[in-house]
């Protein structure tokens, strides 16, 4: 405290100072005000746009059936669209069937599933995995042509999708680039969902 003993705090003074509150939560509205001010200055993005992931080239061909099987139960509840002008975009998740990366094992699956789950919570308003076995037919002019629907045995097949919201293709791409699917060797096709409302 102070160098002069006579100016030291008395025990009562010390107790009173120690009893003063050190924290007081600001009004909740202030958080929204600060976030809005940061966004207005371009210092904060509403969604995590992010740059291209460093690990895109990590591995080709993670066994997607295994992954998506976990992923189904992990899908989050959709949240309301943050802004009316945002359009909806479909991220089609294609899987490469190939050898697992050497540094990944089945023990890594819970962590990978959590990555998908976390990403969906932050970025997607919907999503589904597609059934990987059976019930896959194509109808061509009323005829069944099973040859044109790729499945897990094929080099590339559709394993699931996410629905995200973005103002334009560039923003949708930026969001898609943060999806862990890319890091594990998957391919994402981005398609705009047509607005059919009046």
């Amino acid at each position: 405290m102070n160098s002069k003993p006579s100016e030291e705090l008395s025990p009562q003074e010390q107790r009173a100072l120690a009893a003063l509150p050190r924290e007081r939560a600001p009004r909740p509205e202030l958080e929204e005000r600060v976030v809005a001010a940061l966004q207005a200055r371009g210092l904060l993005h509403r969604h995590r746009p992010g740059g291209v992931r460093r690990w895109i080239g990590l591995a080709a061909g993670l066994a997607a059936a295994f992954l998506l099987g976990y992923w189904l139960g992990a899908r989050r509840e959709p949240e309301p669209p943050p802004q009316p002008p945002l359009g909806q975009w479909l991220l089609l998740l294609y899987e490469n069937q190939g050898p697992w990366p050497a540094d990944l094992t089945e023990a890594d699956m819970p962590r990978i599933v959590e990555e998908y789950r976390s990403w969906a919570r932050e970025n997607a308003v919907g999503g589904e995995r597609l059934e990987l076995r059976g019930n896959r037919i194509s109808l061509v002019a009323g005829e069944i042509d099973s040859q044109i629907v790729p499945g897990p045995e094929d080099a590339l097949y559709l394993g699931g999708f996410f629905v995200i919201q973005a103002q334009n293709l560039e923003q949708a791409r930026t969001i898609a680039e943060t999806c862990p699917h890319l890091k594990y060797g998957g391919i994402i096709e981005i398609r705009e969902i047509a607005d059919m409302t009046e």
Partner: peptide, 27 residues
């Protein structure tokens, strides 16, 4: 996370961790 991705969630977490103390200090 905030610096790399402009992550709003990361910012809000920082804000909530430190604002009560800062608010009392400023008050």
């Amino acid at each position: 996370a905030f610096l790399e991705r402009g992550d709003e969630g990361a910012f809000r977490a920082l804000y909530r961790r430190h604002s009560p103390r800062l608010n009392q200090f400023l008050l």
